Amino acid sequence: MKKAWSESLPAIQFRIARPTHQLQKIIEFYTNGLGLEIVGSFKNHDGYNGVMFGLPDVDYHLEFTQHLNATPILPPSDDNLLVFYMPNIEERNAMVSRLESMGYYAVEPENPYWKRNGITICDPDGWRIVLQNSNGIFKDIE
């Protein structure tokens, strides 16, 4: 059995889940564009299809679901972000180039902090992804 995070939060796994109305485009963006691995998927489970991407494994993952009768999902505010910290700027820039070749271009972040070392790109549903050139959280805050 996996070890719990702490006594006050005895969780052993963390999932961020959100709906989409264009699952195939989401799969292409997160696999071909960002390079995440699919760690699970399902079809017609109680009327839903879905896919899970590991971050970097199944202990932390993103799940996207699409109802079989999906209607367009409105994007959140411009300050709802998934931030990926990437210490190697060449690798980050290669990822940005790959996303641009797929038709996903940088957008202006709402919070100017993310312009310092980051590039913000919207996924197919309009959710914002920040590719931050940094060694990790809190190390780039002044």
Results as ranks from 00 to 15, higher is better:
Met1Ile: 14
Met1Asp: 15
Met1Ala: 14
Lys2His: 13
Lys3His: 10
Ala4Pro: 12
Ala4Tyr: 07
Trp5Ser: 12
Trp5Lys: 13
Leu9Asn: 14
Ile12Asn: 14
Ile12Cys: 13
Phe14His: 12
Phe14Ser: 13
Phe14Trp: 10
Ala17Cys: 08
Arg18Cys: 03
Pro19Asn: 10
His21Cys: 01
His21Tyr: 12
Gln22His: 11
Gln22Ile: 06
Glu28Gln: 12
Phe29Thr: 03
Phe29Arg: 02
Tyr30Phe: 07
Thr31Cys: 00
Asn32Ala: 12
Asn32Leu: 11
Gly33Thr: 11
Leu34Asn: 02
Gly35Trp: 07
Glu37Gln: 15
Ile38Thr: 14
Ile38Phe: 05
Val39Glu: 02
Phe42Tyr: 11
Lys43Gln: 12
Lys43Leu: 06
His45Tyr: 14
Asp46Glu: 13
Asp46Trp: 00
Asp46His: 12
Gly47Trp: 05
Tyr48Lys: 02
Met52Gln: 04
Gly54Asn: 02
Leu55Cys: 12
Asp59Gly: 05
Asp59Phe: 06
Tyr60Asn: 13
Gln66Tyr: 06
Gln66Glu: 03
Leu68His: 07
Leu68Pro: 04
Ala70Gln: 06
Pro72Met: 06
Pro72Leu: 07
Ile73His: 00
Ile73Val: 12
Leu74Trp: 11
Asp79Arg: 11
Val83Glu: 07
Ile89Lys: 14
Arg92Ile: 06
Arg92Tyr: 08
Arg92Asp: 03
Asn93Asp: 15
Val96Ile: 13
Glu100His: 13
Ser101Phe: 08
Met102Thr: 13
Met102Gln: 12
Gly103Gln: 04
Gly103Ser: 10
Tyr104Asn: 09
Tyr104Phe: 11
Val107Ser: 08
Val107Asp: 02
Glu108Arg: 06
Pro109Lys: 04
Asn111Ser: 08
Pro112Tyr: 09
Pro112Asp: 13
Tyr113Lys: 03
Lys115Cys: 08
Lys115Leu: 04
Gly118Val: 03
Ile119Thr: 15
Thr120Val: 09
Ile121Val: 13
Cys122Arg: 11
Pro124Ser: 12
Asp125Met: 12
Asp125Trp: 09
Gly126His: 01
Trp127Leu: 06
Ile129Glu: 02
Val130Asp: 03
Leu131His: 03
Gly136Gln: 07
Ile137Glu: 14
Ile137Gly: 09
Phe138Tyr: 09
Phe138Leu: 15
Phe138Gln: 15
Lys139Ser: 13
Asp140His: 04
Asp140Lys: 01
Ile141Met: 08
Glu142Cys: 00
